[in-house]
């Protein structure tokens, strides 16, 4: 009985190319978040919703949200753990290294008297009175707070006076290697917008308007409100509600002069 043939080894030149292709590229967190939103919208459209709607993601009490972060959550050692943030990653908590670095910036910014950097520590189950959500763009969703631009990848010297949160602000940062879920308000806001956008693209005007209604209800002063208002004009126009679309468009042009959405809205409303 003859031995079974084995596949040939690769020639050295080809083996070199294969070796270069082997490592898994780092995950683009923005892409992951957008893709999940698209999948979510498609599942809803198909009646196969996996049930994790944006509103669900933020309906949890902060403590429950943090509990979902489970084993990977870590407290910031900067500022002697004075602050804990529910670090916004994406709807799925897809934390890339870059993202974590940016989150670290956010932590540094809200950590009074921190000693610099973000140290890894076991999960701390906080009892937050208030949670500050930090997105990948270090957008702090607390009214009237100045937001500093994203700084270097590694924070060595926190600038605690750039963002000043309420005194009872709690901050938790995700462990740099953790990929567990930390649903966030910012991600939920984005998911609603993406759902509306997908519906508009599919000319499902009523679905779009419903998503936008939910967005306005939950995030009246949300960071994506310009996009929300633009999508609403488009959805109203698509639904044949031209008078409402026109009126809203005129208000939009006044409210957001120079908006990148303006040309599109002019074309759909003839305003």
């Amino acid at each position: 009985m003859s031995a079974r043939e084995t596949p040939p080894p690769l020639p050295p030149a080809l083996a070199e190319l294969v070796d270069a292709e082997r490592p898994l590229p780092p995950l683009d967190d923005v892409l992951a978040s957008q893709l999940f939103a698209r999948i979510d919208a498609s599942l809803v459209d198909a009646g196969l919703s996996h049930g994790e709607h944006p509103e669900d993601l933020t309906r949890d009490a902060p403590g429950e949200v943090l509990e979902k972060a489970a084993s990977g959550a870590a407290a910031s050692a900067g500022g002697a753990g004075a602050a804990k943030v529910a670090a916004a990653t994406s709807a799925l908590g897809l934390a890339s290294k870059a993202l974590v670095a940016k989150v670290a910036v956010g932590v540094a910014l809200v950590t009074a008297g921190g000693v610099g950097g973000v140290a890894v520590a076991p999960v701390v189950r906080p009892q937050p009175e208030r949670v500050v959500y930090v997105t990948r763009t270090v957008r702090v969703l607390v009214p009237s707070e100045p937001v500093a631009p994203v700084g270097p990848a590694v924070v060595t010297q926190p600038t605690p006076d750039v963002v000043t949160g309420p005194t009872n602000t709690h901050v938790t940062v995700q462990h740099p290697t953790n990929t567990d879920t930390v649903p966030t308000q910012a991600a939920a806001e984005r998911l609603l917008i993406e759902r509306a956008r997908t519906a508009v693209q599919g000319e499902r005007w009523e679905q779009a308007l419903e998503a936008l209604r939910q967005h306005e209800q939950r995030f009246p002063r949300g960071a994506d409100r310009e996009e929300r208002d633009a999508l609403r004009v488009e959805a109203l126009a698509g639904a044949g509600r031209t008078a409402e679309a026109g009126a809203l468009a005129r208000r939009f042009f006044g409210q957001y002069p120079g908006s990148i959405y303006a040309p599109r809205l002019r074309s759909v409303t003839q305003e």
Partner: peptide, 19 residues
């Protein structure tokens, strides 16, 4: 449970699927 399972599969598998 199902949502969590899907999220876990998506989170873990996305980079590999893309690649």
């Amino acid at each position: 449970e199902r949502a969590a399972q899907f999220q876990a599969v998506f989170r873990t598998g996305l980079p590999y699927v893309l690649q």
